[in-house]
Design a binder for these strands. Structure first.
Length: 412
DNA sequence: TCTGGGGTCCTAGGACCC
DNA sequence: TCTGGGGTCCTAGGACCC
């Protein structure tokens, strides 16, 4: 089997770096990029802010507490999407095999490009230089024989790092690497593994497969492989990815509400957002999911219903959401409302008769292709954009899972 | 003054059909 | 009277990712 060479590129503090580049006054200063609403959190902070203890997910006041001079910047998705698209174009000048994992992370399979560009390290340095030159921002790059390890490697040196995990060095690197550093091992999984005295990738790779399988079911085999640094998942290039599976929007309200009229108005807005995006994607769906988070933050519920017909019109979505709502009694004022449409199918598209319309359709398709990959309400025709639509903290959906398996049924 | 928003995938358990 | 097993579709909820 031929050994692959995979790069994982992770833009450093991406949103914050883009903002600092756009506004020289922000350079060298602690800044935090936040969402548009009142109850928002820090999406990204600059390294200057991180040095003071500012972390992603903090409320603004928390950030200000640990770093009083913190500058708050409301994020602008269009800037990030534009930059991200351009950066991915740079990647594609080395190989068509580029997979965008999120707005600021991509993998490249450069196995077949080495003959042209010399070496992976060479490619990595070129990429770093081009991104720095064109956008003034830095990235960390990992080079390894597969995606799992490349992502691990890019995390090992930040910012502006370059880390190589050679095939014959994998075992040594993983031996003392904490399991939670692997993409796919979250908090819960870490805890369960720790209870089995598994702390490092080395531990996990050596663990008896049957023991892991007894505890975690079918994912046990995969865990052992991850511990050994094995990952066979391919780099899935743009356009080859599976179709979108669901389209949803949610809003945390400026203040908790319990007025039914206000709730319905918000549901209508959300329905319009979901519907317009579904239509732009060219999909309709028959399952509508309504979710509510109550004022106390901790209690929430979700309820879904599956219709006989596929829909993507805003008012149909709204009606379905309302009918779900009518089956429940709200127990508290509402903090967050969300609607998502799933069970999707592509609509048969009628080719427009006139050339001008066909061109417009092509443009829409191109736009959708970007939107599908790079979030919502970002690239859109000016006329479609409601003036009040604020830049939020939307991020690009991740599309990769280690062998598509994530959840586990833990037998205790 | 608490704690965003966008996704994917997986499992359990029930309904229903053959 | 009691009984099986397989398959599909659906809802609910959780883990994980950026």
């Amino acid at each position: 089997m031929i050994t692959k060479t995979i790069l994982h590129i992770d833009m450093n503090a991406f949103f914050a770096s883009v903002e600092q580049q756009a506004n020289p006054n922000l350079r060298g200063k602690p800044i935090a990029v936040v969402g548009g609403g009142g109850r928002t959190v820090i999406t990204t902070s600059s390294y200057e802010a991180r040095a003071k203890g500012v972390k992603t997910g903090m409320a603004i006041w928390e950030g200000k507490r640990v770093c009083p001079e913190l500058i708050i910047v409301v994020g602008d998705n269009r800037k990030y999407t534009y930059t991200s698209t351009k950066i991915n174009e740079i990647f594609r000048s080395y190989t068509p095999e580029v997979e965008a994992f999120s707005i600021d992370e991509s993998w490249m399979d450069v196995t077949h490009s080495l003959g042209i560009f010399g070496s992976a390290v060479n490619i990595a340095y070129q990429i770093k230089a081009r991104i720095r030159h064109s956008f003034g921002i830095t990235c960390s790059i990992g080079i390894a024989p597969n995606k799992l390890l490349a992502k691990l490697a890019s995390d090992m040196q930040k910012p502006d790092g370059l880390t190589i995990i050679e095939p014959d060095n994998v075992t040594r690197v993983l031996e003392r690497m904490p399991i939670k550093e692997l993409c796919g091992i979250g908090k819960k999984m870490e805890r369960h593994l720790n209870m089995m005295s598994i702390y490092t990738c080395g531990d996990m790779g050596r663990c008896d497969e049957a023991r892991l399988t007894r505890k975690f079911g079918i994912i046990g085999k995969r865990l052992k492989e991850m511990g050994q640094g094995i990952d066979r998942s391919p780099v899935i290039q743009f356009g080859e990815a599976d179709d979108v599976k669901s389209v949803g929007h949610s809003r945390t309200l400026e203040r908790d509400i319990d007025d039914p009229v206000e709730i319905r108005r918000l549901l209508l807005q959300l329905s319009e957002m979901v519907g317009s995006r579904a239509r732009r994607y060219g999909v309709s769906g028959k399952t509508i999911h309504l979710y509510v988070r109550y004022a106390d933050f901790f209690s929430s519920w979700g309820k879904q219903t599956t219709l006989k017909n596929y829909i993507n019109q805003s008012d149909d979505i709204y009606k379905a959401a309302i009918s779900i709502l009518s089956t429940v009694e709200l127990e508290q004022p509402v903090r967050l409302l969300g609607i998502s449409l799933s069970n999707l199918k592509h609509q048969a598209e009628q080719l427009p008769l006139f050339a001008e319309d066909r061109r417009k359709l092509e443009a829409t398709r191109a736009m959708d292709a970007v939107n599908q990959r790079f979030g919502d309400m970002v690239v859109t025709f000016g006329s479609l954009l409601p003036g009040k639509e604020k830049a939020g903290s939307h991020v690009i959906p991740p599309s990769w899972r280690p062998d598509g398996i994530k959840n586990v049924d833990v037998k205790s």
